[in-house]
Amino acid sequence: MRNVFQKALWDQRRNLPFWASGVALVVLLEAALWPSMSDMASLDDYLQDLPPALREVFSLDQMATGSGFLNAELFTLVLPMIFLVFAINRGARMVAGEEEAGTLDLLLVTPLSTTRLLVQEAAALTLSIIALGAAVFGATMVGGRLFGLGISVAAAVVGATALVLLGVEFGILALVIGALTGRRGLAIGAPTALVMAAYLLFVAGALVDGLAAWRGFSPFDQALHSGPLSPQVPASFAWLVLPPLLALLVALPLWSRRDIGTAR
Protein backbone atom coordinates (compact mmCIF):
# COMPACT_ATOMS: atom_id res chain seq x y z
CA MET A 1 0.00 0.00 0.00
CA ARG A 2 1.63 3.18 -1.17
CA ASN A 3 -1.35 5.52 -1.46
CA VAL A 4 -4.97 6.02 -0.54
CA PHE A 5 -6.18 4.42 -3.78
CA GLN A 6 -4.35 1.17 -3.06
CA LYS A 7 -5.35 1.31 0.57
CA ALA A 8 -9.03 1.71 -0.35
CA LEU A 9 -8.79 -1.35 -2.61
CA TRP A 10 -6.89 -3.29 0.05
CA ASP A 11 -9.71 -2.53 2.50
CA GLN A 12 -12.00 -4.54 0.22
CA ARG A 13 -9.73 -7.53 -0.18
CA ARG A 14 -12.26 -9.80 1.53
CA ASN A 15 -15.40 -7.84 0.93
CA LEU A 16 -15.24 -7.42 -2.85
CA PRO A 17 -14.58 -11.09 -3.78
CA PHE A 18 -17.51 -12.03 -1.56
CA TRP A 19 -19.86 -9.59 -3.29
CA ALA A 20 -18.56 -10.44 -6.76
CA SER A 21 -19.04 -14.17 -6.28
CA GLY A 22 -22.45 -13.41 -4.78
CA VAL A 23 -23.73 -11.51 -7.81
CA ALA A 24 -22.17 -14.07 -10.17
CA LEU A 25 -23.94 -16.88 -8.34
CA VAL A 26 -27.28 -15.06 -8.48
CA VAL A 27 -26.93 -14.59 -12.25
CA LEU A 28 -25.87 -18.21 -12.82
CA LEU A 29 -28.72 -19.61 -10.74
CA GLU A 30 -31.25 -17.46 -12.55
CA ALA A 31 -29.84 -18.47 -15.92
CA ALA A 32 -30.16 -22.10 -14.89
CA LEU A 33 -33.91 -21.59 -14.54
CA TRP A 34 -34.21 -20.44 -18.13
CA PRO A 35 -34.53 -23.89 -19.83
CA SER A 36 -37.55 -24.80 -17.72
CA MET A 37 -39.12 -21.33 -18.12
CA SER A 38 -38.74 -21.25 -21.88
CA ASP A 39 -40.55 -24.58 -22.12
CA MET A 40 -43.64 -23.12 -20.45
CA ALA A 41 -45.94 -22.56 -23.39
CA SER A 42 -48.50 -20.74 -21.30
CA LEU A 43 -46.05 -18.12 -20.03
CA ASP A 44 -46.75 -15.66 -22.80
CA ASP A 45 -50.51 -15.91 -22.31
CA TYR A 46 -50.05 -15.37 -18.62
CA LEU A 47 -47.92 -12.31 -19.15
CA GLN A 48 -50.39 -10.78 -21.59
CA ASP A 49 -52.94 -10.63 -18.77
CA LEU A 50 -50.71 -8.50 -16.55
CA PRO A 51 -51.19 -4.68 -16.44
CA PRO A 52 -49.19 -2.89 -19.15
CA ALA A 53 -47.38 -0.72 -16.59
CA LEU A 54 -46.13 -3.77 -14.73
CA ARG A 55 -44.95 -5.27 -17.97
CA GLU A 56 -43.08 -2.09 -18.73
CA VAL A 57 -41.39 -1.66 -15.33
CA PHE A 58 -40.07 -5.20 -15.29
CA SER A 59 -39.58 -5.47 -19.07
CA LEU A 60 -41.95 -8.41 -19.08
CA ASP A 61 -42.80 -8.05 -22.76
CA GLN A 62 -39.61 -9.77 -23.77
CA MET A 63 -39.90 -12.46 -21.15
CA ALA A 64 -39.94 -15.05 -23.91
CA THR A 65 -36.34 -14.31 -24.90
CA GLY A 66 -33.28 -15.16 -22.82
CA SER A 67 -32.18 -11.57 -22.34
CA GLY A 68 -35.74 -10.50 -21.65
CA PHE A 69 -35.97 -13.16 -19.00
CA LEU A 70 -32.80 -11.98 -17.22
CA ASN A 71 -33.86 -8.34 -17.55
CA ALA A 72 -37.16 -9.07 -15.89
CA GLU A 73 -35.83 -11.36 -13.22
CA LEU A 74 -32.57 -9.66 -12.25
CA PHE A 75 -31.43 -6.58 -14.12
CA THR A 76 -34.39 -4.32 -13.39
CA LEU A 77 -34.55 -4.72 -9.62
CA VAL A 78 -32.45 -7.33 -7.84
CA LEU A 79 -29.05 -6.55 -9.36
CA PRO A 80 -29.46 -2.74 -9.26
CA MET A 81 -30.34 -2.96 -5.58
CA ILE A 82 -27.34 -5.18 -4.82
CA PHE A 83 -25.06 -2.75 -6.65
CA LEU A 84 -26.58 0.21 -4.83
CA VAL A 85 -26.26 -1.34 -1.39
CA PHE A 86 -22.63 -2.17 -2.11
CA ALA A 87 -21.79 1.22 -3.64
CA ILE A 88 -23.50 3.37 -1.03
CA ASN A 89 -21.99 1.44 1.86
CA ARG A 90 -18.48 1.57 0.42
CA GLY A 91 -18.80 5.21 -0.55
CA ALA A 92 -20.01 6.22 2.89
CA ARG A 93 -17.27 4.25 4.58
CA MET A 94 -14.41 5.72 2.59
CA VAL A 95 -14.23 9.25 4.00
CA ALA A 96 -16.97 9.52 6.63
CA GLY A 97 -16.18 6.08 8.01
CA GLU A 98 -12.48 6.89 8.31
CA GLU A 99 -13.30 10.21 9.86
CA GLU A 100 -15.58 8.65 12.47
CA ALA A 101 -12.87 6.10 13.25
CA GLY A 102 -10.36 8.94 13.71
CA THR A 103 -7.98 7.63 11.05
CA LEU A 104 -8.62 10.32 8.44
CA ASP A 105 -6.40 12.76 10.39
CA LEU A 106 -3.38 10.58 9.75
CA LEU A 107 -3.95 10.44 6.00
CA LEU A 108 -4.44 14.19 5.78
CA VAL A 109 -1.55 15.41 7.91
CA THR A 110 0.80 14.49 5.07
CA PRO A 111 1.58 16.32 1.82
CA LEU A 112 -1.49 14.56 0.37
CA SER A 113 -4.11 17.16 -0.54
CA THR A 114 -7.79 16.79 0.25
CA THR A 115 -8.49 16.88 -3.50
CA ARG A 116 -6.21 13.96 -4.27
CA LEU A 117 -7.54 12.00 -1.34
CA LEU A 118 -11.14 12.34 -2.49
CA VAL A 119 -10.29 11.66 -6.13
CA GLN A 120 -8.33 8.54 -5.21
CA GLU A 121 -11.16 7.28 -3.04
CA ALA A 122 -13.63 7.94 -5.87
CA ALA A 123 -11.38 6.07 -8.30
CA ALA A 124 -11.06 3.09 -5.96
CA LEU A 125 -14.83 3.04 -5.44
CA THR A 126 -15.46 3.18 -9.19
CA LEU A 127 -12.96 0.41 -9.83
CA SER A 128 -14.53 -1.87 -7.24
CA ILE A 129 -17.99 -1.32 -8.72
CA ILE A 130 -16.53 -2.08 -12.17
CA ALA A 131 -15.15 -5.31 -10.71
CA LEU A 132 -18.63 -6.18 -9.51
CA GLY A 133 -19.93 -5.35 -13.00
CA ALA A 134 -17.27 -7.59 -14.52
CA ALA A 135 -18.50 -10.45 -12.34
CA VAL A 136 -22.04 -9.89 -13.61
CA PHE A 137 -20.80 -9.73 -17.20
CA GLY A 138 -18.80 -12.95 -16.79
CA ALA A 139 -21.66 -14.81 -15.15
CA THR A 140 -24.10 -13.57 -17.80
CA MET A 141 -21.85 -14.84 -20.58
CA VAL A 142 -21.13 -18.18 -18.91
CA GLY A 143 -24.74 -18.71 -17.81
CA GLY A 144 -26.01 -17.60 -21.21
CA ARG A 145 -23.82 -20.15 -22.98
CA LEU A 146 -24.49 -23.00 -20.56
CA PHE A 147 -28.26 -22.64 -20.54
CA GLY A 148 -28.80 -21.31 -24.04
CA LEU A 149 -30.15 -17.83 -23.26
CA GLY A 150 -28.70 -16.43 -26.46
CA ILE A 151 -27.32 -13.23 -24.96
CA SER A 152 -24.77 -11.40 -27.12
CA VAL A 153 -21.50 -10.06 -25.74
CA ALA A 154 -22.66 -6.52 -26.53
CA ALA A 155 -25.90 -7.00 -24.61
CA ALA A 156 -24.06 -8.42 -21.61
CA VAL A 157 -21.63 -5.48 -21.65
CA VAL A 158 -24.42 -2.92 -21.85
CA GLY A 159 -26.37 -4.66 -19.08
CA ALA A 160 -23.38 -4.76 -16.73
CA THR A 161 -22.50 -1.17 -17.63
CA ALA A 162 -25.99 -0.01 -16.65
CA LEU A 163 -25.50 -1.56 -13.22
CA VAL A 164 -22.04 -0.08 -12.83
CA LEU A 165 -23.19 3.43 -13.80
CA LEU A 166 -26.13 3.25 -11.44
CA GLY A 167 -23.89 2.06 -8.62
CA VAL A 168 -21.20 4.65 -9.31
CA GLU A 169 -23.72 7.48 -9.37
CA PHE A 170 -25.09 6.76 -5.92
CA GLY A 171 -21.82 5.48 -4.51
CA ILE A 172 -20.01 8.70 -5.40
CA LEU A 173 -22.95 10.60 -3.94
CA ALA A 174 -22.48 8.71 -0.66
CA LEU A 175 -18.74 9.39 -0.77
CA VAL A 176 -19.31 13.09 -1.39
CA ILE A 177 -21.96 13.48 1.31
CA GLY A 178 -19.59 11.71 3.68
CA ALA A 179 -16.80 14.09 2.72
CA LEU A 180 -19.04 17.13 3.17
CA THR A 181 -20.54 16.13 6.51
CA GLY A 182 -18.21 13.57 8.07
CA ARG A 183 -21.24 11.53 9.05
CA ARG A 184 -21.47 7.98 7.81
CA GLY A 185 -25.11 7.61 8.79
CA LEU A 186 -26.09 10.59 6.67
CA ALA A 187 -23.82 9.42 3.85
CA ILE A 188 -25.80 6.17 3.75
CA GLY A 189 -29.22 7.61 4.54
CA ALA A 190 -29.42 10.49 2.07
CA PRO A 191 -28.43 8.50 -1.07
CA THR A 192 -30.72 5.67 0.03
CA ALA A 193 -33.63 8.10 0.24
CA LEU A 194 -32.72 9.38 -3.23
CA VAL A 195 -32.63 5.81 -4.56
CA MET A 196 -36.12 5.26 -3.20
CA ALA A 197 -37.36 8.49 -4.77
CA ALA A 198 -35.72 7.66 -8.09
CA TYR A 199 -37.20 4.16 -8.10
CA LEU A 200 -40.62 5.53 -7.18
CA LEU A 201 -40.44 7.97 -10.09
CA PHE A 202 -39.32 5.13 -12.37
CA VAL A 203 -42.33 2.98 -11.40
CA ALA A 204 -44.87 5.79 -11.08
CA GLY A 205 -43.80 7.15 -14.44
CA ALA A 206 -44.92 3.85 -15.95
CA LEU A 207 -48.20 3.76 -14.04
CA VAL A 208 -49.33 7.39 -14.08
CA ASP A 209 -49.60 9.15 -17.42
CA GLY A 210 -48.98 12.58 -15.91
CA LEU A 211 -45.59 11.47 -14.63
CA ALA A 212 -44.47 9.78 -17.83
CA ALA A 213 -42.68 12.93 -18.98
CA TRP A 214 -40.67 13.05 -15.75
CA ARG A 215 -39.65 9.44 -15.87
CA GLY A 216 -36.51 10.23 -17.84
CA PHE A 217 -35.11 12.10 -14.85
CA SER A 218 -34.93 8.92 -12.81
CA PRO A 219 -31.47 7.29 -12.91
CA PHE A 220 -33.29 3.96 -12.95
CA ASP A 221 -34.97 4.90 -16.19
CA GLN A 222 -31.71 6.21 -17.62
CA ALA A 223 -29.98 2.95 -16.78
CA LEU A 224 -32.70 0.39 -17.38
CA HIS A 225 -35.19 1.61 -19.98
CA SER A 226 -33.36 -0.03 -22.85
CA GLY A 227 -33.35 -3.42 -21.23
CA PRO A 228 -30.75 -3.08 -19.84
CA LEU A 229 -29.47 -6.20 -21.62
CA SER A 230 -29.54 -4.79 -25.13
CA PRO A 231 -26.93 -4.61 -27.86
CA GLN A 232 -27.27 -0.81 -28.21
CA VAL A 233 -25.65 1.63 -25.82
CA PRO A 234 -28.46 4.02 -24.87
CA ALA A 235 -27.68 7.75 -24.97
CA SER A 236 -29.26 8.11 -21.53
CA PHE A 237 -26.14 6.53 -20.01
CA ALA A 238 -24.52 9.96 -20.34
CA TRP A 239 -26.97 11.29 -17.75
CA LEU A 240 -25.70 8.75 -15.27
CA VAL A 241 -22.11 9.90 -15.62
CA LEU A 242 -22.77 13.60 -15.25
CA PRO A 243 -24.22 13.90 -11.70
CA PRO A 244 -21.39 12.08 -9.88
CA LEU A 245 -18.78 14.13 -11.74
CA LEU A 246 -20.61 17.32 -10.87
CA ALA A 247 -21.04 16.26 -7.25
CA LEU A 248 -17.30 15.63 -6.99
CA LEU A 249 -16.42 18.97 -8.57
CA VAL A 250 -18.75 20.89 -6.29
CA ALA A 251 -17.64 18.99 -3.20
CA LEU A 252 -13.88 19.33 -3.65
CA PRO A 253 -13.49 22.98 -2.63
CA LEU A 254 -16.11 22.69 0.12
CA TRP A 255 -14.60 19.61 1.69
CA SER A 256 -11.15 21.11 1.74
CA ARG A 257 -12.46 23.93 3.93
CA ARG A 258 -14.23 21.76 6.45
CA ASP A 259 -13.14 20.93 10.00
CA ILE A 260 -12.11 17.29 10.15
CA GLY A 261 -13.39 15.10 12.95
CA THR A 262 -15.85 17.47 14.60
CA ALA A 263 -18.93 15.43 13.72
CA ARG A 264 -17.85 12.52 15.85
Binding site: M1, R2, N3, V4, K7, D11, A101, G102, T103, D105, L106, L107, T110, P111, L112
Partner: peptide, 23 residues
Protein backbone atom coordinates in the same frame (compact mmCIF):
# COMPACT_ATOMS: atom_id res chain seq x y z
CA UNK B 1 -3.41 12.63 17.53
CA UNK B 2 -4.64 12.34 21.09
CA UNK B 3 -6.82 9.38 20.17
CA UNK B 4 -4.45 7.50 17.90
CA UNK B 5 -5.81 4.12 16.79
CA UNK B 6 -4.58 3.45 13.25
CA UNK B 7 -6.23 0.71 11.20
CA UNK B 8 -7.16 -2.30 13.29
CA UNK B 9 -6.78 -4.68 10.34
CA UNK B 10 -3.33 -3.49 9.26
CA UNK B 11 -0.08 -4.66 10.79
CA UNK B 12 2.20 -2.03 12.28
CA UNK B 13 4.54 -2.50 9.32
CA UNK B 14 1.79 -2.03 6.72
CA UNK B 15 0.47 1.02 8.50
CA UNK B 16 3.88 2.69 8.81
CA UNK B 17 4.64 1.91 5.18
CA UNK B 18 1.39 3.53 4.06
CA UNK B 19 1.89 6.66 6.15
CA UNK B 20 5.58 6.79 5.17
CA UNK B 21 4.66 6.59 1.48
CA UNK B 22 2.12 9.38 1.84
CA UNK B 23 4.89 11.50 3.36
Amino acid sequence: PGDFTGYADQTGGQFLHLIGSLR
